[in-house]
């Protein structure tokens, strides 16, 4: 009989990515992802606030090592992510198609995502020169300002640009030495999980990028209020969402970055300013002469 039975396809379990591991959500909750014809594509983890809490712990403990890594190394690692994404581009294209994106658009999006990683890999040891300065002061001091990563960044990734939008936000955060916790698009979550696998295979230390799947309505509050998060980036939502984020972020004076209605395919979708937005400026007064 062997050979005459149709093979049962092995479906992939889409899990979340925390601290360099792929656990299921601790809540045990899942939501169904449907194709346009109504068939079920996958059961996706509905991440909880405890998953988020665990992810922040992982991001915080990864921050020391990642922020201390040389700019050169961070650039190399971003380049490596691009290399591996290139090698798996067919998978990402078919995942996008599966979720209802046209093949032509999907191909374009994957290529743009790879190029975007290369773009930020190149900036890794250059943005510092642009945003740092030697300041004129009228005293016997050598006065200079340099950038330092702000810390742990929480990111509510764009809902409609599930790969390019995700990469365009993660890359400037991590190239600057920050670590991040990301909530993937709820409608198009597959690429984010597969991108986590790419990150996992590209020398990115565990905890530098943590990716959850789930619903923004449920998690925005936690993303904005957690005292151990230093900046929040959000990409969707009306003025009510904006207000909610800003009020909750005020407790520990997070940086709040709204990137709504951004066309990530456009030239403006990449810029060293996006790196500088999650950096702090440290100014030093160094006595001279006397």
């Amino acid at each position: 009989m062997a050979g005459s039975t149709a093979r049962v396809p092995v479906a992939k379990t889409y899990k979340i990515y925390i601290g360099g591991k792929f656990p299921r959500t601790e809540s045990g909750r899942y939501f169904k992802l449907n194709a346009s014809d109504g068939s079920v594509i996958a059961n996706v983890c509905q991440g909880s606030r405890k998953d988020f809490r665990n992810a922040v712990v992982a991001a915080r403990s990864a921050f020391g090592g990642w922020s201390a890594a040389s700019a050169y190394l961070r650039g190399q690692i971003l380049y490596r992510i691009a290399e591996l994404l290139e090698g798996r581009s067919d998978q990402f294209v078919s995942e996008l198609v599966l979720q209802g994106v046209s093949r032509r658009k999907a191909k374009k999006e994957v290529v743009a995502s790879i190029d975007r990683l290369i773009y930020y890999a190149g900036w890794s040891d250059k943005y510092q020169q642009i945003f740092s300065a030697v300041n004129p002061v009228s005293s016997a001091h050598f006065n200079f300002s340099v950038l330092e990563p702000t810390g742990v960044v929480s990111l509510l990734a764009p809902e409609d640009s599930s790969l390019l939008g995700l990469v365009s936000n993660i890359a400037p955060i991590i190239v600057g030495g920050n670590t991040c916790v990301v909530l993937a698009s709820a409608q198009l979550p597959l690429c984010a999980v597969s991108f986590a696998e790419v990150l996992h295979a590209s020398d990115v230390p565990g905890g530098v990028v943590n990716i959850l799947t789930g619903f923004a309505e449920e998690l925005t509050e936690q993303f904005a209020s957690h005292m151990d998060v230093n900046a929040i980036v959000y990409c969707d939502g009306d003025s009510e969402v904006a207000k909610n984020v800003q009020v909750r972020a005020a407790d520990n004076v997070k940086r709040v970055l709204a990137r709504c209605d951004q066309d990530w395919t456009a030239d403006a979708g990449q810029s060293p300013y996006l790196i500088s937005e999650t950096q702090e400026t440290k100014t030093t007064w160094h006595p001279i002469g006397g």
Binding site: V56, Q222, S225, M227, D228, D251, N252
Partner: peptide
């Protein structure tokens, strides 16, 4: 407080 905390404080 209902808010997750940071060792910084």
């Amino acid at each position: 407080s209902g808010v997750y905390q940071s060792a910084d404080y």
